[in-house]
């Protein structure tokens, strides 16, 4: 039930302990609407944030969030509990994002200016408010990053994102992309080379 959702003092939903998580999963499997609502409310922001950061734009975000949860609710029967629920949902996000990257017919600038306007810098990262020049610089840097990532093959792109931006280790990435750590390491090696080369090329192209 929603009343069981625990919130910490910052207003965010606190993490579930394993027993509560198992209980929530069991209730969801029993088609309990309140439990499904709770699962949705717990993870919706995490899912949207993951997809948004991986893809770099908010186009189709509603549809992708929906897809993730549909897969999650349908797949709960097969969830074995060998990872935390949040990790399992993250894995679904990664796969949905991978599918989206693969099916993109054309490749617009990965992050549009409208999106960048809303991607406000975390205040903790800057002691002083950004000046307009700094803001423009940051937006251009982000755009370059996503443009460079767009040059990579989808599998390489995901691995690079998870390692370089999310800071995950090889084992975690291997679980998320359903591969083994050795393959991930190889993929990451080439992905980094290609990405930073593309980034350098983007720098060369600057006025």
């Amino acid at each position: 039930m929603l009343s069981r959702v625990k919130r910490d003092t910052t207003g965010t939903i606190a993490a579930l302990d394993p027993a509560d998580e198992a209980d929530l999963i069991a209730r969801c499997r029993a088609d309990e609407r309140a439990a499904q609502d709770e699962l949705y409310h717990r993870f919706r922001r995490q899912v949207a944030g993951n997809l948004y950061r991986v893809l770099g734009d908010r186009g189709d975000l509603d549809d992708l969030v929906q897809e993730v949860f549909v897969i999650a609710f349908r797949g709960l029967e097969r969830f074995r509990g060998d990872a935390r629920l949040s990790t399992w949902i993250y894995r679904i996000c990664v796969n949905v994002a991978l599918g989206k990257i693969r099916t993109r017919k054309r490749r617009p600038a990965a992050i549009g200016m409208a999106d960048l306007d809303t991607a406000v810098m975390d205040p903790s990262l800057t002691e002083r408010p950004e000046t307009p020049a700094q803001s423009l610089q940051r937006r251009q840097d982000q755009e370059r990053v996503y443009r460079a990532m767009d040059t990579l093959a989808p599998k390489k792109r995901i691995v690079l994102y998870l390692h370089e931006i999310e800071g995950l280790d090889l084992k975690e990435i291997a679980y998320l992309v359903d591969s083994n750590p050795v393959t991930v390491r190889t993929r990451l090696f080439y992905a980094r080379k290609e990405f930073y080369k593309a980034l350098e090329g983007a720098a060369d192209g600057d006025p």
Binding site: R45, A48, G49, Y52, R53, G56, R58, L61, D115, T118, A119, V120, M121, D122, S124, L125, R138, D141, Q142, V145, E164, I165, E166, G167
Partner: peptide, 10 residues
């Protein structure tokens, strides 16, 4: 990278 990681959820 930090700015992307900390971008607010739309």
């Amino acid at each position: 990278f930090a700015a992307i990681k900390n971008a607010p959820v739309p």
